[in-house]
Amino acid sequence: MNSTAINLIPRVYWTLTAFLFAAVGAMVIFWTPREATMGDVQKIFYVHLPLAIHTFLACFVVFVASVMYVLQRRLWWDDLAGAAAKVAVLFASLVLLTGMVWGRSAWGHWWTWSPRLTFSLILWLLYVVYLMIRPSIESPQKRAMISAVYGVIAFLDVPLVYLSTKLLPDIHPESISLAPPMKMTLLAWFVPMTLLAAGLLIARFRLNRRRSVLERGAEEDLEDDRTEDAAYAGPHLTPAGEIA
């Protein structure tokens, strides 16, 4: 009984999220006014901004988890950082795509080296690299350590990237004055978007956790004496040691 209730939680969560997305989608289509100069394409903005903000939040989670890993050396933190990076890359990709669609209709080009687009691109690159290097490092501890250091450095780099893209000539709208229904819709979009980001993060994290426990009996197994011999699958010394 209890376990069925727990199993229901994700289903309820995702149904709610989907429902809310439908609701805010309807708001955009039926309720918000058409923007004077941009037309309907401006409506992409309701998706674009929450996505962008959640990208930053995900990057921040990567950063915090990375710092914690360096300090505590528990793979728990690495699994969290990995999950957050996946969310960050997914959202950053969507930010880039929506930005490109917007730019296509505003300036007539899919791509311009405008500060914001350049910034999104570099941010996307920074975290795609994070995801790509992980599978190429075999030892879980080395992978976690290299990823963690990269997670810290990449996040420190973000404000610098932002400032340096400011040096490029700008044609991006600085601030748009929003009519009240526009503001409402924008705020409403944050709700399902936050649910989506948090849901993906948790799902991904649990998957990572299960994987690291399955693949090699995780740290916690050591506490349980009975599983020790099962967890020990032959000699496993790293010849280069763990200096790095």
Binding site: L125, L126, V129, A154, V161, L167
Partner: peptide, 12 residues
């Protein structure tokens, strides 16, 4: 792979 993306800032 690790160094280039971070360095884009300096290049820019």
């Amino acid at each position: 792979m690790l160094v280039f993306p971070v360095t884009l800032t300096i290049i820019l």
